[in-house]
């Protein structure tokens, strides 16, 4: 299971990559494995404002619906609309072609508060063992 060191993470299993004042967001390798084959991705329209940890979309896999949570506050400036036709990219390439949205961050400090790769990996291990 991959936990790229250059990304930050949420406890809700999103990853975030900072590019200047923008933050690219997707779901983690762990999340896509838990969910199984993704068949539907619902993303917000460009221009939508979102709050940190507010829902910004939904994925459906194996007839199971799960919410997506924004790692940081801001405005959606890009949505990966390719996922509408190729939702399987979330499984095949969760950190690459399966990216979901780009957020113009309203508060850059929020990114720094996200989990590091090591902290997220430890969180996943602890979550599995505590259930």
């Amino acid at each position: 299971m991959e936990f790229p060191a250059n990304l930050r993470y949420t406890k809700e299993h999103e990853w975030a990559r900072q590019e200047g004042n923008r933050v690219v967001v997707g779901i983690t390798d762990y999340a896509q494995k838990e969910l199984g084959d993704v068949v539907f991705v619902e993303l917000p329209e460009v221009g939508t404002t979102i709050e940190a940890m507010g829902t910004f979309g939904v994925v459906e896999s194996v007839k199971a619906v799960s919410d997506l949570y924004a790692p940081v506050s801001g405005t959606i400036v890009e949505a990966n609309t390719i996922l509408e036709d190729q939702p399987e990219l979330v499984n095949a390439s969760p950190y690459g072609q399966g990216w979901m949205v780009v957020i113009e961050a309203a508060n850059p400090e929020e990114f720094q508060q996200l989990l590091t790769a090591a902290a997220y990996q430890a969180y996943v291990a602890q979550e599995k063992s505590s259930r």
Partner: peptide, 10 residues
């Protein structure tokens, strides 16, 4: 995701 925060809109 995978989190059921109480959806604020709901």
């Amino acid at each position: 995701m995978l989190r059921t925060a109480i959806p604020p809109a709901s």
